[in-house]
Each structure stands twice: as C-alpha cells, then as structure tokens.
Computed example of a mutant assay.
Amino acid sequence: MSEITLVLLAMALGTDAFSMCIGIGMAGVRRRQTAVITMTIFIFHIFMPLIGWYIGGVLGNLLGRVAVVAGAALLVYLGGRMILAVWREGADNSARSMIDSLWGVVLLSAGVSMDALSVGFTLGTRNVNLLQAAGVIGLVAGLMTFTGLVLGRFIGSWIGSRAQMAGGAVLVGIGVKLFWG
C-alpha cells in the first residue's frame, strides 16, 4: 500500500471523528477537553486496527456492530437533547457533561473508531506494515479530531445561540449515519 493510499484511508476513517467534533465544538469545549478528546480518539484509531488484525474478522464484525449501534444511539440522544434544550429554555450542557467524563469520551471515541477495527483485519491480509499503518491512521484521526473541535468552537462563537442547535443536528446526523452503516 502506497503512502498516499494509506493517508487517504486514514482520512476516510477520521471523517466520523471530524464531523462529530465539529458538533461537540459548537456546543462548547474547553482546551483541556480538546486535548483529552483528541488523544483518546488518536489512541483508539491506533489500537483498533491492531485489535482488528489480531482478533480477526468474525469477532471484529460482531463487536464492531454492537459498539457502532451503541455509539450511534448515544450521539442521537446527545444531539436530540441539545436541540430540545434550545427550543425549551436555552443552552443544554449534555454534550459538555458527556465530554467531562472520561467514560463518555471513551464511548464517543469507541463509536467513531469502530470502522478502524474492521480495517485492521483487512490490513492484516495485505502486505502492509501494520504498525506504520496504525500510526498514520491514529495521527490523521487525531489531527482531524483537533481540527473539528477547534473549527466547531469557532463556528459556535461566530453563530451564537444557534450553534447548539446546529451542533445537535450534526451529532444526530452522524449518529443516524453510523447506525445505518
């Protein structure tokens, strides 16, 4: 696999994290949270291909689908709460409380990293330096995560109170996309 192909694969795997982080950033995220979320997604995107390579396709597909459904449901719930809160009384802190907890960050990171699990199995069947591939996938996903959070925070401050509704809609959309596949 060429370096360009590997980077394109890594970018494709990082798009869910990027999109999700725009929504989270629009709801409001502190610098510490940005660092924690970026590092967690970075780590997940390194280890998921390695795990996928080691445990094989059958278990990876079974575990991957369960985690994707749970992650999708979580994003739809979180985005829905954000949208409803804007209509009811103003800002909702669901997204912020979710990313304040390490368990919440881990769940979100796992949800957007599941596709890397099955990619790991595929990479294991090819003549690929798996450690290099996992490192590139993690690095690109980490950069896309950071960019999404910063861009979302900028957009959120730019469009004001409508940012939370837009961020909620982004999270719901990503959750639906993850659920349907």
Rank of each mutant, 00 (worst) to 15 (best):
L63G: 05
L63M: 09
L63V: 10
L63I: 10
L63W: 02
L63N: 04
G64N: 00
G64H: 01
G64Y: 03
G64V: 02
G64F: 05
R65M: 14
R65T: 13
R65A: 09
V66P: 01
V66F: 07
V66D: 02
V66I: 08
V66W: 06
V66Y: 08
V66H: 04
A67M: 08
A67C: 08
A67D: 04
A67S: 09
A67I: 11
A67P: 06
V68H: 03
V68L: 02
V69L: 11
V69R: 04
V69F: 08
V69H: 04
V69G: 00
V69K: 02
A70L: 09
A70G: 00
A70F: 08
G71K: 02
G71W: 03
G71R: 00
A72P: 05
A72W: 02
A72C: 06
A72G: 12
A73N: 02
A73E: 01
A73T: 11
L74D: 02
L74E: 01
L74K: 03
L74W: 03
L75W: 05
L75R: 03
L75T: 02
L75E: 05
L75Y: 06
V76Y: 06
V76F: 06
V76T: 08
V76Q: 05
Y77N: 13
Y77E: 08
Y77R: 10
Y77L: 11
Y77P: 01
L78D: 08
L78K: 12
L78H: 11
L78A: 14
G79M: 05
G79C: 05
G80D: 02
R81I: 08
R81V: 06
R81M: 09
M82V: 12
M82Y: 09
M82P: 08
M82S: 15
M82Q: 14
I83F: 10
I83A: 09
I83K: 03
I83M: 10
L84S: 07
L84D: 05
L84E: 08
A85L: 06
A85M: 12
A85G: 11
A85V: 08
A85Y: 01
A85Q: 07
V86C: 12
V86N: 06
V86K: 10
W87M: 12
W87P: 10
W87F: 15
W87G: 12
W87Q: 07
W87C: 12
R88A: 14
R88I: 11
R88D: 15
R88G: 15
R88H: 14
E89H: 12
E89A: 12
E89N: 12
E89D: 15
E89K: 14
E89C: 09
E89P: 08
G90W: 03
G90I: 05
G90S: 06
G90R: 05
G90C: 10
A91N: 11
A91I: 14
A91D: 10
A91S: 13
D92C: 09
D92M: 07
D92F: 07
D92P: 04
D92L: 01
D92Y: 03
D92E: 07
N93P: 13
N93Y: 15
N93H: 14
N93I: 12
N93K: 12
S94F: 01
S94E: 01
S94I: 00
S94Y: 00
S94D: 00
S94H: 00
S94P: 00
A95N: 01
A95E: 03
A95S: 12
A95D: 04
A95C: 02
R96T: 14
R96S: 15
R96E: 13
R96H: 15
R96I: 13
S97N: 15
S97I: 13
S97F: 14
S97H: 14
S97D: 15
S97E: 15
